[in-house]
Design a protein around this nucleic acid. Sequence first.
DNA 1: CCGTCTATGTCCAACTAGTGAACTCTAAGC
DNA 2: GCTTAGAGTTCACTAGTTGGACATAGACGG
Lengths: 399, 399
Amino acid sequence: METPGSQSSLHRANLERVVRAVRLAGSLTQAEIARTTGLSAATVSNIVRELKDGGTVEVTPTSAGGRRARAVSLSGDAGIVIGVDFGHTHLRVAVGNLAHQVLAEESEPLDVDASSTQGFDRAEELVNRLIAATGVDESKIAGVGLGVPGPIDGESGTLGSTAILPGWTGSKPAEEMRGRLGVPVHVDNDANLGALGELVWGSGRGVRDLAYIKVASGVGAGLVIDGKIYRGPGGTAGEIGHITLDESGPVCRCGNRGCLETFAAARYVLPLLQSSHGTDLTMEGVVRLARDGDPGCRRVIADVGRHIGSGVANLCNLLNPSRVVLGGDLAEAGELVLGPIRESVGRYAIPSAARQLSVLPGALGGRAEVLGALALALSEMGDSTLLDGTLSAATPAFT
Amino acid sequence: METPGSQSSLHRANLERVVRAVRLAGSLTQAEIARTTGLSAATVSNIVRELKDGGTVEVTPTSAGGRRARAVSLSGDAGIVIGVDFGHTHLRVAVGNLAHQVLAEESEPLDVDASSTQGFDRAEELVNRLIAATGVDESKIAGVGLGVPGPIDGESGTLGSTAILPGWTGSKPAEEMRGRLGVPVHVDNDANLGALGELVWGSGRGVRDLAYIKVASGVGAGLVIDGKIYRGPGGTAGEIGHITLDESGPVCRCGNRGCLETFAAARYVLPLLQSSHGTDLTMEGVVRLARDGDPGCRRVIADVGRHIGSGVANLCNLLNPSRVVLGGDLAEAGELVLGPIRESVGRYAIPSAARQLSVLPGALGGRAEVLGALALALSEMGDSTLLDGTLSAATPAFT
DNA sequence: CCGTCTATGTCCAACTAGTGAACTCTAAGC
DNA sequence: GCTTAGAGTTCACTAGTTGGACATAGACGG
């Protein structure tokens, strides 16, 4: 860290290499570590001892001078990460460890009109409750990922104007939560986190580039390019909801006309069904009715799918992701909405780009965002954090 | 290389670090190298000696035991790279050195109907001529970047169907050229190379994310994300020309209707002016007439700009690049086309994304692609190639 | 014109960290 | 019970970086 490019940094890199290998495999013997990392057995021996002393790693079977295959695995309590997701109506929290396991997860309703302060209070409470429930040491928290349903200004960390949580505009969620929990907090918007969540734990496993389309009260997309969230220089990448589909279409809340959102988002779609199906319909309800065979709801969902497909076709021509994952309430409609999407993509995207695109429903449902927040905390932390001793009570008092 | 993660690799990394620092600064003293790289003066001393012996670096003023500030710079003949660009009607070749300087550049007309073999023959000839002209040693060629006006299949390196160079479909340009020149050849399509060229030498300097829009007989975009060409998993990213603007618009050669290309590309636009301005009009001619005040041409160009702006607005919403550079013949029209583009972007893109977007004309004109090819050769080579001794006749006979 | 001062580059001894080879240990197979 | 093979450790060695001592040369001031 101090001296970039000199033995100590090499050593650090090798430590990380070992940790990464162990994490990916879950559990390895030293010999296997040596093979997968390319390091010599002797080096691995030293590194494993160092990590074991530091507490980041556990050596399972024998403890003394045993010989046969001692499995090395990340010690469960080396550090934990927390994901917090503020949704339109929910607050969700998940606790995970550095081995990418989710230890606990819980959600509770959140009043939309609540002030941001109340929201953060509730979040802090729920985090503490979950930590207590899992029985881990609070000091082991390595980082927090935070999802908010609105645009975040990259530099200042300020939450931009969002019609979803009216009282929250201008607040600085990362700062707030850091103040309460005393650990690094990383924020991003829900679409980006959903993308990351599906990539790591859901329908995007095995892919490096993914677009996560979330249809709820608005329409947004989270882009993951080469395994990392792509935010764009201004932090507003992925605004698929405001692609223009029809220059003379309905006026959108963004001020333009005929945005994809005006054909697909709940706030514009639900009114279409009000005269026939009553006024207190939700997107969830429409999906349920459609699955039960209601023709009107089916038609509306298919139309929404077609329009989303047009947007995805544009996305596909421009970005050519290998996978598109549909999230939000609408994903529950399954083929009722995916079919029309695929059809539209097939029609409007150039064939070579469309051919190798797979459009899948999200596998995580409403959990995608919290899990993405967890993944964000893990990735922002980097593997090095757990080697710094700040976590694992390593570096005994010799300074 | 053999042993990833062990002193020799550290040494390699440090060699590269020094080379990179020198390249970026052009010329540095050892003390400055030590400061910018963070390495110790002793290490720098050793590394510089090694590089000097290897021939990759030159030490300028004194040669013996002098003390005051000996400038270290990349030796001009440590290696050269070559860029080759096959355009619609041109063949362009540029020769550059590892210090990112262009040593020679030349273009000649190329018959569209020529076979690919003839084209490669001509390219080989021109490359040899330029090498002879610059007086560098042919064995110093480190790599070649090759631009072709059509889609390249990433895996096989096969040129896809392209209406621009009819006889070339199915050829493997990289293989062909490698066979002739005997050095690594990297291919990409002209839009991607144009993007890279403008990024490194033109209107994109200082930016990390850029979209280069090339309007010629077709409309394509090259995307650079975080300093690297983004091709997408299928290699077809950037197909902005086939974004659908009007579902019931004219039929496009891609089979869809109302693609951006049908409103902006030469093949669709020129016919509009045939009855009034004659049949042998070129895009260049239209631009010239427009600049001279011809109202019909001005109108057509403005309309093209508006449509391109719609496409850019979509691009902007989805990807949020910090800069869009317009290339191709159309760029010569300057504000006549940029104005309408900006206007359209302002209208159709979400404000937060549009606000920080700058739309600029290309600074390199028709040279963007060759220079991009040069840059591709440099970047694909990586800094390490010139440390391998394969180039610089290092590693004297002691094995 | 000369001494002093300072920054530059080089040399050397010390130290860090990885490696191959030898060695110890265990469990399995005969 | 003996052998064998794989696992992990120890040790001497080597590669490579570092801090400090040293030589050098130009700038500055007298």
